[in-house]
Every structure is written in structure tokens, then in C-alpha cells.
């Protein structure tokens, strides 16, 4: 269903927000098919560059995980990305067609003996930059949410 990537944005007049659902092919670099628009919309909704950086990183890591580890680059499988952005909340759900994994089984990359292992940092970065991250029971879908920090003063 690669044509879904070209589907139009769905404005949500009730909240003044933006939402979009895209099926990405299981190819390296496919995240760009949704990322550009997501980043642009975060900017339009007044998000700070620092927050946009964190959301960008978290979503990129999640999509790469879904394509490479979830779908194992299988061209017959797609990754569904559902985004919703308002001035207060960014919510991105990434679902692959793989068998899923147990996020609790990912070793802590900040332990001394693992500090120099070159992989395994994506999930930790997602947890750090988002307000909440939740996997479904099967472990093939992750929901990333970031709440806008209240204005200082």
C-alpha cells in the first residue's frame, strides 16, 4: 500500500491540530517520507527547536527499529506511522508487521560494561526525549508522546 504515502493530510478542525497516517516501505531511509512534514508541522504549531530535535530523534529511532529489526527490511511489509500534532501534544505511533520484541529485555546501554557497545541506544533515547513511550503487548507497536513544557513565567 505504498500509495498511502501520498495520501493527503487530514485536518482536524475540532482541535486545530494536524494528523496524518502513512505506510512506509521497509527500506532504509524511508522515514524521510513522513519526517519532513512532521517536523514542518511541529514548527507550524509553535514547538521549540529543542523539542523538535528530541521528537525527530525519537521518531527516527523508532522508525529505523521498525524497518530494520521489526520488518527486517522485508519489501512485502510496511511500517504504519500515525502522527497527531497540536500546540500542546505530539503523538506518534509506529507499528511494524514483525513478530515484536520485549523492550524490557534491551540491556541498559549506560552500564559500564556496555558503554562501548556500538548499538542498543535507540530505545533509551526515545524514553529520554519523549514524555511517554509505550509498547503494545506484542511489542511491534510503539506509541511516542510528548507534552509541550509549560511556558516559563
Amino acid at each position: 500500500m505504498a500509495h498511502d504515502a501520498a495520501a493527503g493530510a487530514q485536518p482536524d478542525p475540532s482541535s486545530g491540530g494536524w494528523s496524518r497516517e502513512v505506510d512506509l516501505p521497509s527500506e532504509r531511509g524511508a522515514s524521510r517520507l513522513v519526517m519532513e512534514e512532521l517536523l514542518e508541522q511541529l514548527g507550524h504549531h509553535g514547538w521549540e527547536p529543542t523539542d523538535i530535535f528530541g521528537i525527530h530523534l525519537a521518531v527516527e529511532e523508532a522508525i529505523v527499529n521498525a524497518i530494520v529489526h521489526g520488518n527486517k527490511l522485508d519489501p512485502a511489509k510496511t511500517v504504519r506511522v500515525s502522527c497527531a500534532v497540536t500546540p500542546q501534544m505530539a503523538r506518534i505511533e509506529i507499528t511494524d508487521a514483525g513478530v515484536g520484541f520485549d523492550p524490557a529485555a534491551v540491556p541498559d546501554c549506560t552500564r559500564d560494561e556496555r558503554l562501548e557497545v556500538p548499538s542498543g541506544r535507540g530505545v533509551m533515547l526515545m524514553r529520554s526525549f519523549m514524555t511517554t513511550i509505550a509498547y503494545n503487548a506484542r511489542g511491534n507497536s510503539v506509541l511516542l508522546e510528548k507534552q509541550r513544557a509549560p511556558h516559563a513565567g
Binding site: L57, E61, V64, E116, V117, P118, G122, L125
Partner: peptide
């Protein structure tokens, strides 16, 4: 301006 965890992996390997 931006780097992903895959790039961090290369930096770690370079450091080693």
C-alpha cells in the same frame, strides 16, 4: 545539527 544512534555506534567503534 542532528545525529542518530547508528552514528553514535560509529563514533564508539572509531574511539575503540
Amino acid at each position: 545539527e542532528f545525529l542518530s544512534s547508528a552514528a553514535l555506534g560509529k563514533l564508539i567503534t572509531l574511539d575503540r
